[in-house]
């Protein structure tokens, strides 16, 4: 192709290449080169006639895509080495992580589940979304309970109930003691959910 190439030829080749994005790269390159050779050197009239013979570029591209669909890739020729099977991912890390989240609080409070959550973050057994939810679930539950507790306490200290509360001081929703129980309730549930989800997927995200 040079500056004297007719516009109709340029347009056709541009259209052809754009239509062939779904065709295997090696076939696409060879076909575009072959058609370019065929149009090279033709004046506008001759090129128009040849283009009419070649046909609609989108049709050519669709035919090429359909004809290469079932072909093995060039690198997958019978002589090429068969792809090595991927080694199964180790299950030790995710299982340890899930178990630490479930029972860690009862063994070493705070540190136990924290180590479990950190191990979970490095494991391939869970998606990024699952990891974020696992980290945020205890915090979200804590926040919700603390807010609910504060609201209940504020209501109990209103003038109408103050006199009664003077006798039996209110502790909201069981007081702040309830929040301390969260690691013992929420984290085991989070751990069990993580364990079940990962085991169903053979410990792969």
């Amino acid at each position: 192709m040079n500056d004297t190439t007719p516009q109709i030829t340029r347009d056709y080749l541009v259209q052809l290449e754009a239509s062939m994005s779904g065709v295997r790269p090696d076939v696409r390159a060879e076909m575009v080169a072959g058609i370019r050779e065929e149009l090279d050197g033709l004046d506008a009239a001759a090129a128009a006639a040849r283009i009419a013979d070649l046909g609609d570029p989108t049709f050519i591209a669709a035919e090429a895509a359909a004809a290469t669909e079932s072909d093995p890739r060039p690198s997958e020729s019978p002589t090429a080495a068969p792809p090595q099977p991927q080694p199964a991912p180790s299950r030790a890390l995710p299982i340890t992580a899930a178990l630490l989240i479930i029972v860690g609080t009862f063994v070493v409070p705070i540190i136990g589940p924290l180590v479990g959550l950190v191990l979970m973050s490095f494991s391939m057994a869970w998606s990024r979304r699952e990891k974020i939810v696992a980290w945020l679930a205890p915090l979200a539950v804590t926040l919700i309970l603390a807010t609910a507790n504060a609201i209940v306490i504020a209501m109990q200290s209103s003038p109408a109930t103050e006199a009664r509360n003077a006798v039996t001081p209110g502790l909201g929703l069981g007081g702040w003691h309830l929040i301390i129980l969260i690691p013992y309730l929420v984290l085991p549930i989070v751990g069990v959910v993580l364990f079940v989800r990962a085991s169903r997927r053979n410990w792969q995200a």
Partner: peptide, 24 residues
């Protein structure tokens, strides 16, 4: 060359267009 083959095969209705030839 490609076009030569395509022309003959299309004329004989063995392929619909040059798009089938190159993958072959």
């Amino acid at each position: 060359y490609g076009w030569q083959l395509s022309e003959k095969l299309v004329a004989a209705q063995l392929i619909a267009s040059i798009g089938t030839l190159y993958p072959m």
